[in-house]
Computed example of a mutant assay.
Amino acid sequence: MSTLSVSENKQLLIPKNFMKVMILSIILLGVCVLASLAFGSRTVGWNELMDGLFHPEVQTHGANVVRQRIARTIFSLMCGAALGVSGALMQSVTRNPIADPSILGVNIGAALFVVIGISFFNIGSASHYIWFALVGAFITAIFVFGIGSMGSGGATPLKLVLAGAATSAALSSLVIAIMIPRSSVMDQFRFWQVGSVGAGNWDSISLFIPFLSVGLLIALFTAPALNALALGDEVATGFGVRTGTLRLIASFGGVLLCGVTTALAGPIGFIGLLAPHWIRLMIGPDLRFVIPMSALTGAIVLTIADVSGRLLGSPGELEVGVVTAFIGAPILILLTMKAKMRAL
């Protein structure tokens, strides 16, 4: 029997509302994509949108604007999908209903190492950001999980959130301490820190694809065993799942997705919290369906936030990290009140 799957799950039972939710999500995703291509500092009409997408011989200003927005839109979809799946994995591994890369301190850990790279190693490209951000994300995740696991009861939801909050506060102070005497670093970092998909281009997408692919494959491969883990470690062990190995691999996938997204787009919070919660409410807890739908929902939410930021900040734009924080903070408060820190 596989250490990461449950052989007894031979029949794949499709959740009752899955098809309806998936069809509606795909339609909404299409609307979001069109909105992302049409709206911005310059709004384009339907004819210009069609020319930009399907008539390369047309070289009007509106059509060229649409073509320039294609890479940003694809990048936004990829970032949202990665954060949605990362949140689903972290919530499942920790059995914590409010786990999220930003809440557990992974984002700020990645940010700290990017600041270190900018300050002491003079990095300035996305390809360099990725590796520094990944190292910071993994070290922070290990530290938070280690602190949260101390004492009786192991890694309870409350201890993990408190450990993440304390770690985030400490690392945020360290980021500020490094930047204050270095004005050039502060100027370079402050635009990245807010969290934005505006810098997304084809180079960023090509860098993102291999990491996103690995993270998604890990998530899908571990989903059946994570379903067993939700029943408790003893039950999962009875099904033949090696819980320690499972947590290690699934956590690696979640942190990988979060770290790469943070490196390329900055620390964008709350997507990993909102997407899995919404999907669980709609179709239930089966991670074989929650994970792919979290990717779809995360892409939708982040793209909506990006378009909203452009409209609200017109003629400039409001960074997507600000919009997601504005939406996500009150929802986090409500979820915390309802969950009462219960495990999944």
Rank of each mutant, 00 (worst) to 15 (best):
I118W: 14
L104F: 14
G52P: 12
L53K: 01
G87C: 03
A111G: 12
G154S: 09
I123Y: 00
G124A: 00
F132H: 05
S92N: 07
I123E: 00
S25R: 05
V115E: 07
M150D: 00
P101S: 05
D100Y: 08
I139C: 06
L53Y: 01
T94I: 00
E57R: 00
I116L: 13
V114A: 10
I103K: 15
A81W: 07
G136Q: 13
S36K: 05
A63N: 08
R42D: 08
G109F: 10
Q59D: 15
H128V: 04
F143T: 15
G151Q: 06
V66T: 11
S76W: 00
M78P: 09
G148D: 08
L83I: 01
T73P: 14
G153Q: 13
G148H: 11
I130G: 13
L49P: 09
G136P: 07
V93T: 05
T73H: 03
Y129I: 03
F138S: 03
T73G: 08
P101H: 03
E48D: 15
A88C: 08
L112T: 03
M90G: 00
S127E: 11
F75R: 12
Q91V: 05
M78G: 11
N64E: 13
I103V: 15
T73S: 14
N96G: 03
N47E: 13
G146I: 14
I26Y: 06
R67N: 04
F145C: 09
M90F: 03
S149L: 11
S76K: 01
I70C: 02
V85I: 09
T73M: 07
V115A: 14
I108G: 08
T60W: 06
V31Y: 01
V44P: 09
Q59G: 02
G80V: 01
M78S: 08
W131I: 08
G40E: 03
P101L: 03
S86F: 01
V114H: 10
G30C: 11
I116K: 04
I23R: 12
L83S: 03
G87Y: 02
V58A: 06
Q68E: 13
W131K: 04
G62N: 14
G151E: 04
S119K: 09
W46C: 10
V65K: 09
H61W: 01
V31S: 02
I27W: 02
L77W: 12
K20F: 12
V114F: 13
G105D: 12
F121N: 06
A111T: 04
I139G: 00
I26D: 01
V58R: 07
V33S: 03
A81G: 15
A137T: 06
